[in-house]
């Protein structure tokens, strides 16, 4: 189960169970059909295994928490992306050094776009 808030502070709890997405918000629970195509996202995972951090969503870079050459621990915050009025804090999926940062603050990014590269 995942919890998030949108920009208006409305809380969402979601979980994918079987072929449906279960959502609880505004005090009610319901299910929606999951119509998205998972293909693209499998690619995301593949790319991330090659030590690139990619954006999971289309959006805008709100802030960059690291500099090139920094050493980071697994779980450290790296980049914050805003999408659909929600902030996504992207954290390090592994410990290591940042080789290069490919985006700037305020820049728009596409889904699966490379944001930074680990050494």
């Amino acid at each position: 189960m995942k919890f998030f808030k949108n920009s208006s502070g409305i809380k969402f709890w979601i979980e994918k169970v079987g072929e449906k997405i279960w959502v609880h918000f505004k005090g009610r629970t319901f299910a929606v059909d999951n119509k998205q195509e998972p293909l693209v996202h499998k690619k995301t995972s593949d790319v991330q295994k090659k030590s690139n951090l990619v954006s999971p969503v289309p959006g805008r870079v709100l802030s960059i928490k690291v500099k090139e050459g920094d050493s980071v621990q697994k779980g450290d915050s790296l980049i914050v992306i805003e999408s659909m009025k929600i902030e996504h804090t992207l954290t390090a999926f592994q410990s290591g050094r940042i080789k290069s940062i490919l985006v700037q603050k305020g820049q728009s990014v596409e889904s699966n776009e490379k944001l930074l590269i680990f050494e």
């Binding site: 994918k16 996202h41 991330q48 996504h88």
Partner: peptide, 20 residues
């Protein structure tokens, strides 16, 4: 919004190296 968040969930399902 819900669709996007679900995409993230599916990423988590398919990736062992997951930032979320």
């Amino acid at each position: 919004l819900i669709q996007q968040q679900t995409d993230l969930l599916q990423d988590q399902e398919t990736s062992a190296f997951n930032p979320w």
